[in-house]
């Protein structure tokens, strides 16, 4: 008993620290989302649901739709590029696997904003891409590659690709090669082995990849603000402008953050925790 108390006392500082800087701010969001504000933007302690009612404004709803479109396209895009790549890496020799994965992760070492700026230089009118395409005769030099939805999705896919590759690679890599050999011995072809053995066993990894891309993208603002030219707002842009920009309506921002929070929790539990607990049950049942 004394030992347990001592262990608890040593863990207390970090626990209190995290409660103050993670738990309390989340409670602040929940409380302030139900408060109103005066003409100067100061928060008034008067209960209201007006912040949540505003979400049903058609303009706000279209921003929600826009965010969902960007997030769905981006996570599908990362999947289409990342999944084949992950399976390819998993089929390599152990040593080359480590090198390739390290290489893919090392790109994080450079600031994401600096890399976004690199893409701006490449994609702009008269930029490298345009000149290259003109050189091989595919462009007349007038096409605009920046400030539109495809460009935003493209750079988002680029930025989040490692988040899709990694969980699928981990899942594919942990499949015992004997399973695939067994399928082949039983007469299944390459494609059938992949579809009936490899793919189902990688399901958790794929779901995790989707969650790891989809969730952060819904709250992202700097790519759509720069690459997208700020022409189309996403939820991240709206929330950022309410909290730091000229919109400056903290209670409304809190309500938006609350919606985003609930949404993220739903996605996390469906894509990350449910598969895990189901698998645990299967293992326990055996």
């Amino acid at each position: 008993m004394f030992d347990r108390l001592k262990a608890f006392l040593t863990v207390l500082p970090i626990l209190l620290y995290l409660i103050t800087l993670v738990g309390v701010p989340l409670v602040f969001i929940a409380v302030i989302s139900f408060l109103s504000r005066d003409d100067h933007g100061r928060i008034l302690f008067a209960f209201t649901t007006v912040n949540y009612n505003r979400i049903f404004d058609p303009v706000i709803l279209s921003i929600f739709r826009e965010s969902l479109i960007v997030a769905s396209l981006a996570s599908t895009g990362t999947f289409l590029i990342g999944a084949p790549f992950a399976f390819f890496v998993a089929s390599l020799k152990r040593r080359s696997q480590n090198v390739v994965i390290l290489f893919a992760l090392f790109v994080f070492w450079t600031s994401s904003l600096i890399r976004t700026n690199g893409w701006m230089i490449i994609l702009q009118t008269n930029g490298i891409l345009n000149r290259f395409l003109m050189l091989i005769g595919l462009s007349d030099g007038t096409t605009r590659y920046l400030f539109n939805l495809p460009a935003t999705v493209f750079v988002t896919v680029y930025m989040f690709l490692p988040f899709m590759i990694l969980p699928i690679y981990v899942a594919a890599e942990s499949i015992a090669p004997t399973l695939r050999d067994a399928a082949r011995d039983l007469g299944a072809g390459h494609i059938r082995t992949f579809l009936q053995v490899t793919l189902p066993l990688c399901k958790d990894g794929i779901l995790a990849g989707f969650a790891l891309v989809f969730i952060p993208v819904t709250g992202l603002f700097f790519i759509s603000d720069t690459i997208g030219g700020g022409l189309r707002m996403t939820l991240g842009n709206l929330l950022h402008s309410q909290m730091a920009g000229h919109g400056n309506n903290h209670p409304f921002g809190a309500a938006l953050a609350m919606i985003l929070l609930i949404f993220s929790v739903i996605i996390v539990s469906f894509f990350l925790f449910l598969p895990r607990s189901r698998r645990k049950k299967q293992v326990d049942g055996r």
Binding site: G219, L220, G253, L260, S264
Partner: peptide, 8 residues
């Protein structure tokens, strides 16, 4: 998403 805790 980082923006949620940032808001908080």
């Amino acid at each position: 998403p980082e923006i949620i805790l940032g808001t908080g």
